[in-house]
């Protein structure tokens, strides 16, 4: 009986040997996982497909740099897909450093309404955020990065990151209040 880990290990070896079948196998093994990450950084399915294709080409080309001692293959693939997603958002709009905040306003977001909403409805609200605000919100609220890390990743200051998060929360609160009525 071949376990999932053994199967992935075998696929990785095949990918290192540049075997197309193994590459397809690895792609299909991680398709759902990677697509769920790509969708967070995209406006629609077509954007997500762009992110996925670029990310997997990069994965296969740089697979030799993957070190199992530093983390799981899941974390490595997620990082690459996420970086591609951020590049995609950056390409849509330049990140401005003109706005900064010392502290982030924390408006009350109605969790009860959120729980009643479907995942697609929530994603639609997030997708309508401006690209930079979208990226900061996902990185902070979903991925769990702090403002310093977000600033480094996006090339903006911590204050700007805080401003974008504050804007995202305000928008989210307004949308949820609108739905409540």
């Amino acid at each position: 009986m071949v376990t999932v880990e053994q199967n992935i290990e075998s696929l990785l070896q095949g990918c290192l040997a540049n075997e197309r079948k193994a590459q397809e196998g690895l792609y299909r093994e991680f398709y759902g996982f990677a697509m769920s990450v790509a969708l967070r950084y995209s406006r629609d399915e077509h954007d997500a497909a762009d992110i996925m294709s670029r990310a997997f080409v990069k994965i296969f080309k740089s697979l030799r740099t993957y070190d199992p001692n530093k983390g799981s293959i899941h974390a490595w693939i997620k990082k690459i897909v996420m970086n591609e997603g951020l590049d995609h958002i950056k390409s849509r709009r330049r990140f401005s450093d003109n706005v900064e905040l010392e502290t982030v306003a924390e408006p009350e977001v109605n969790n009860t309404i959120l729980q009643q909403m479907g995942s697609e409805e929530i994603m639609n609200i997030i997708k309508r955020l401006p690209p930079a605000t979208h990226a900061v919100f996902i990185l902070y609220a979903v991925e769990g990065y702090n403002h310093r890390e977000i600033g480094e990743r996006l090339g903006i200051s911590e204050g700007t990151s805080k401003w974008h998060l504050s804007e995202a929360r305000k928008t989210l609160q307004q949308k949820l209040e609108h739905l409540k009525r």
Partner: peptide, 30 residues
């Protein structure tokens, strides 16, 4: 960071997003 309650809810909802069936089309491009 320590996530707030609504952030945990959003994260769990996003993880449950339906995955579009585009595996073959994307693989062709790859």
């Amino acid at each position: 960071i320590k996530k707030q309650t609504y952030e945990v809810t959003i994260t769990s909802k996003l993880e449950a997003l339906p995955i579009p069936d585009m595996a073959d089309a994307i693989w062709t491009r790859i």
